[in-house]
């Protein structure tokens, strides 16, 4: 049972390990060194532009030249009374809130349906993920074709089913254009929310649901009093992501309507692009974009609170 003789001999090591600690042992310095490059990059290329975004909003900078001079609040005095700006601000809120409300309902329903034992669930999940995985600009151009003013397949189907009598010019009427944009946002975000909600549901212990069944809770009671509260944190995360992506998205509006008809569907991002890049007035564009900041701050705070609550609960 004893170790073979040669195994008991002390090491004959060719490379004696260093006895004292080196940089490779020092977690404090190692941590700083490993973190530094990423941190520097993020500070230089997110922090600096962020500061510059603030600065530009108070300047008369124009694209095409590098000059820069302060103009105080002039850009804000220009855009604040501008009805087009009001419209963009209102649209940003409207598109985001309506689409995310629909996303919640659809995602929770879809997740419940899909979590029921199901034939072909993997295939369904793959198909559900398509809208989110596809590059958003390409998806938007696809929808442009679906809503086409002459060949729209949606119109054909609705006419055929008798749901409408007249031809719908999706990008020709403000209400329809709004509907189209919201449809695309919902289509894009609900699969993501569904998949995240599904992940959350699979994390709910089976016993809790079973206990509720045994307690005699009906489906709806179980749903609102057991499942939904347990799912709330993860749904919140999904929705907050959705809010960020939707409220800041440029490509859908840009490719579907270009802000039209009659500038009725501009959002903050598309207006900022129009004023800042097409119009060349970087200052004014930056001032417009800055109004996204409150949304983002609120989202960030909510995210942190959710994360903290999840942490406490875990």
């Amino acid at each position: 049972m004893a170790l073979p003789r040669e195994a008991r001999r002390p090491f004959s090591t060719s490379v004696a390990p260093l006895r004292r600690r080196t940089l490779a042992d020092r977690e404090d310095w190692l941590g700083r060194l490993m973190l530094a490059p990423a941190l520097v990059y993020v500070v230089a290329l997110v922090g600096v532009p962020f500061a510059l975004a603030l600065a530009l909003a108070f300047s008369s900078a124009r694209s095409g030249s590098l000059e820069f001079s302060w103009v105080g609040l002039r850009n804000f005095w220009t855009i604040l009374p501008d009805p087009q700006f009001h419209r963009a601000l209102w649209n940003t809120l409207r598109f985001t809130l309506v689409s995310q409300a629909l996303v919640i309902v659809l995602a929770v329903t879809a997740a419940h349906v899909l979590s029921a034992a199901f034939v072909g669930r993997r295939l369904v999940r793959f198909l559900l993920l398509l809208p989110w995985a596809a590059p958003v600009a390409l998806a938007a151009i696809g929808w442009t074709w679906i809503f086409d003013s002459t060949f729209s397949v949606i119109n054909w189907t609705m006419l055929w089913l008798g749901l409408t009598k007249r031809w719908l010019y999706w990008f020709g009427e403000p209400q329809l254009a709004t509907a189209a944009i919201i449809i695309v946002h919902v289509w894009r975000m609900f699969p993501f929310a569904t998949v995240i909600t599904l992940a959350g549901m699979s994390a709910i212990p089976q016993e809790i649901s079973e206990a509720a069944v045994i307690d005699g809770a009906g489906f709806w009671r179980r749903f609102f009093q057991v499942n939904l509260p347990l799912l709330l944190p993860i749904i919140t995360v999904a929705v907050l992501f959705g809010v960020v992506f939707t409220s800041t998205d440029l490509s859908v509006v840009y490719l579907l309507t270009r802000g039209g008809p009659y500038n009725s569907t501009h959002v903050l991002s598309s207006l900022a692009f129009q004023r800042g890049i097409f119009g060349g007035d970087l200052g004014q564009g930056a001032a417009v974009a800055l109004f996204l900041l409150p949304v983002l701050v609120v989202v960030a705070i909510l995210m942190l609170r959710t994360a903290r609550r999840a942490e406490v609960g875990a």
């Binding site: 170790l3 073979p4 040669e6 195994a7 090491f11 004959s12 090591t13 060719s14 490379v15 004696a16 390990p17």
Partner: peptide, 16 residues
């Protein structure tokens, strides 16, 4: 980690 030669390692691992 100690920089032992592979042959020696084999012997010791098998012994243990």
């Amino acid at each position: 980690a100690a920089g032992m030669a592979p042959a020696a390692i084999r012997g010791r691992v098998q012994g243990a």
